[in-house]
Nucleic acid binder design. Sequence first.
DNA 1: GCCAACGTTGGC
DNA 2: GCCAACGTTGGC
Length: 154
Amino acid sequence: MNYWLLKTEPETFGIADLERAPKRTASWDGVRNYQARNFLRDDVKAGDGALLYYSSCAEPGVVALLRVTRAGYPDPTAFDRKNKHFDPKSKPDAPRWYMIDVQLERKLGRTITLAELRTHADGALKNMRLLMPGNRLSVMPVSAAEWRYLLKLE
DNA sequence: GCCAACGTTGGC
DNA sequence: GCCAACGTTGGC
């Protein structure tokens, strides 16, 4: 089993949306970056754990734990002309973009902010992908050690 | 294949 | 809103 970090802007999609959803489960759609797509398509599996991360907001950081309930499958929003994430180059018989399903496991007791994570960038979180300069990936792996360390911080 | 122009991301 | 970093596009 592997661990991931999934980035979202809270106004676009967040904990409230998952809490409202049936079985607290929703599709993680709209990813339009090839590196992130490759993770979704090839590596993320049902049963994996994921950190829900809020970006572009007052307090960027990790806010909840998710469980992957379905591995990568074609993202239908790419086929929908009216959808914001429509991509005419993605076809149902040759999909370009993939999504997964995730379930809200639980909200964290508190937000573990990006600023706080950075204070560990010389130690336990030295190799954490999120903290690498210039990193903009919206789907990225998290090591088991990093996962455990975050839960300890909580 | 190169590279300039442009768009997006995301912290601050 | 600013701006740096990065990805994508398209002419050549």
